[in-house]
């Protein structure tokens, strides 16, 4: 087929979805960016370009705290999720035998409950009169309900680690499956112990999966609204909660837009830097 014919047929198929994405993705992002440079006086927009919203978003302590906390929570969640997910993926890949598919299915089952309900369940579990406290009281382990369980950043981290675990297990599992087992035999034959084998062969070769998992978890976590709202309390709120408040109650859409653009920049820069730093592991991808 001639190149021009390929071009024509390709674009004939891609045209509609591409125009759809332009109108629902490019135009909205552009509008939001424009809005972030405007100001709002009650209900009327003042369309003079100003950096006032960014000055607030970047330099007011309340927003700085929220950005810092969102980042810290997302990084902690990503770290612990991968720390837990790796042994599971490793076990399934190396010891799963014929039942690998069954193991993977078992791991994903709990995650088909709605995300909203799963996060809410953590509130029910950790609450003052919650499942955990009432269970321990029933057993007689404690006499007073424990109050440090709910409404802080740790509760948010716990709920998010639980919520995102399968998204880490699956990509790590896929990259572990791709490791040529004869490399391990060779290293065994040449006298490598299992510690060296892990750090010199298995971990480097599974890095593409780990990098994928980091991106899959880190990006949505930083913008999570539900979890901090349900289990975070005032000390565990994150940037998404502030964006929503600015948009609705505070009636300051331009500031909300500036906060959104800033989050997007932070996420983008960190994701790109992370991929760049780990580029040697991604050569073959």
């Amino acid at each position: 087929m001639y190149i021009s014919e390929q071009n024509k047929r390709g674009w004939r198929l891609l045209g509609v979805p591409f125009i759809f994405a332009i109108f629902l993705l490019a135009v909205p992002i552009a509008t939001m960016t424009a809005l972030s440079f405007w100001t709002q006086d009650y209900l009327t927009l003042i369309k003079t370009i100003t950096f006032e919203n960014y000055k607030q978003a970047w330099f007011q302590p309340v927003f700085q705290t929220l950005f810092a906390r969102s980042l810290l929570i997302s990084i902690t969640v990503t770290f612990f999720t991968i720390l837990f997910a790796f042994p599971i993926a490793y076990y399934i890949s190396f010891y799963g035998g014929k039942r690998k598919a069954l193991w993977l299915f078992l791991i994903t089952i709990p995650f088909w409950t709605s995300y909203l309900l799963r996060m809410f369940l953590w509130k029910v579990i950790l609450g003052y009169n919650g499942v955990l406290n009432s269970f321990f009281e029933w057993l007689g382990v404690i006499t007073e309900p424990l109050t440090f369980l709910l409404y802080n950043s740790n509760a948010v981290v716990l709920a998010l680690v639980h919520g995102w675990a399968p998204f880490a297990i699956l990509p790590i599992f896929v990259s572990l499956e791709k490791i040529d087992r004869s490399l391990l035999e060779a290293s065994n034959d040449l006298g490598d112990n299992s510690f060296n084998q892990f750090f010199r062969i298995i971990l480097p070769l599974s890095m593409p999966g780990v990098i994928g998992a980091v991106l899959i978890i880190f990006i949505p976590c930083i913008g999570d609204y539900i979890t901090p709202k349900l289990v975070g309390g005032p000390e565990g709120l994150m940037i998404a909660n502030m964006i929503q408040v600015q948009f609705s109650k505070a009636n300051n859409a331009p500031l909300a837009a500036a906060l959104s653009v800033t989050s997007l920049l932070i996420v983008g820069i960190i994701a790109l830097a992370f991929v760049f730093l780990n580029r040697k592991y991604l050569k073959n991808y």
């Binding site: 629902l24 993705l25 135009v27 909205p28 992002i29 509008t31 939001m32 809005l35 990006i219 949505p220 930083i222 913008g223 999570d224 609204y225 998404a240 964006i243 929503q244 948009f247 859409a253 909300a256 837009a257 959104s260 989050s263 997007l264 996420v267």
Partner: peptide
Amino acid sequence: PEIILGVCLLTV
């Protein structure tokens, strides 16, 4: 992040 998608679409 979904919140960004939501904000963008709502703005437009």
